[in-house]
Amino acid sequence: MVLVITLRSWTHFGIITFLPQYYTRCLHHSHTYAADIVSLFLLAGAVGTLVGGPLADRWGLKTIIMLSMGLLMPMLYLFPRLTDLWLILTVAVTGFIIVSTFAVTVVLGQELLPRNVGLASGLTLGFGVGMGGVGTTLLGWVADHWGLTTMFHVMPLLPAAAFLLALLLPNWEEVVRMHGH
């Protein structure tokens, strides 16, 4: 689960870090416009946080994590291929999708480690967010060597790997069985 969270954080922080540069350097928009796009991404993410929990209650924690990672792949694929309104909509949907799993992964971590909820919270939030900085550094290296557009072409591989790893996560029934609830 920590690897899924790490890959999600690399993607999340990569978008926040490099989307403004992409808008200003590649699409030739103003810095203000680029900042507005990042604000839209973050605002949509806040809405995603509010929606992700109830959806996980209905369909399961693992399902929402897998759905999020699965939907991120085509959204990120579209980033360097769209412009104008379609890109703006894609940015908003991507923010909604990626942040919808933040609370979900915290809850799953706490369910997996019911006697160590502090450790679970630290791993799912603290460690995961910290690793986002590492991923941003690696994505920055890709952008420096091959360009921002190439970096956005590579980025869908992160949720693809997270999706495959999420297949290994236990379902709710397996968590209950593990802890005898």
Rank of each mutant, 00 (worst) to 15 (best):
L43V: 14
T90N: 15
L76R: 01
V47M: 11
T94D: 01
L27N: 05
V47T: 13
I97Q: 00
A56L: 08
L82D: 10
G52S: 06
L50K: 07
A35G: 12
K62G: 01
H31E: 15
F79A: 10
M69R: 08
F96A: 10
D57F: 02
L67S: 13
T49N: 15
F79G: 03
A44D: 02
L82N: 11
M66F: 11
P54Q: 13
T63H: 05
L71F: 07
T94L: 02
Y77F: 15
I37E: 04
A92I: 00
L61R: 15
R81V: 07
V93W: 09
L76A: 01
R81G: 08
D36R: 10
R81T: 08
H29Y: 15
L71D: 00
G52N: 06
A46Q: 11
M73E: 04
L72Y: 00
G52V: 02
A35R: 04
H29N: 14
I64A: 04
V51F: 08
P80M: 06
A46Y: 10
V38G: 03
R58P: 00
G60E: 04
L61V: 14
T63K: 09
S68M: 07
H29Q: 14
A34I: 03
H29G: 07
M73C: 12
K62N: 08
L76W: 01
L55V: 11
L67C: 14
L50E: 03
D57G: 11
I88S: 12
V99R: 01
M69A: 12
Y33E: 15
V93C: 12
G60N: 08
L71G: 09
T94P: 00
P54F: 08
I97Y: 03
A44R: 02
I98K: 09
G45P: 11
G45D: 07
V91K: 02
H28Y: 07
R81Y: 04
L82R: 13
V51W: 02
L27I: 03
L43Q: 02
M73P: 06
R58A: 10
G95D: 00
G60H: 11
A35E: 03
G70R: 10
D84N: 11
R58Q: 06
D84T: 09
F96K: 04
L43M: 11
R58L: 08
L43N: 01
F41H: 10
I98L: 09
R58M: 10
L61E: 12
K62R: 12
L42M: 10
S39Q: 08
D84K: 03
I65P: 10
A35Q: 06
T63R: 04
I64S: 06
L76K: 01
L72I: 07
D36T: 11
M75G: 06
Y33H: 15
I37F: 09
I64T: 14
G95S: 05
T63I: 06
L55F: 14
A92M: 12
V51E: 02
G95E: 00
L50S: 12
A56Q: 09
W86R: 08
Y77R: 04
T49C: 15
T49K: 13
L72E: 13
R81D: 05
L67A: 15
L78N: 02
T49W: 09
F96G: 06
H31R: 14
H31D: 13
L42V: 13
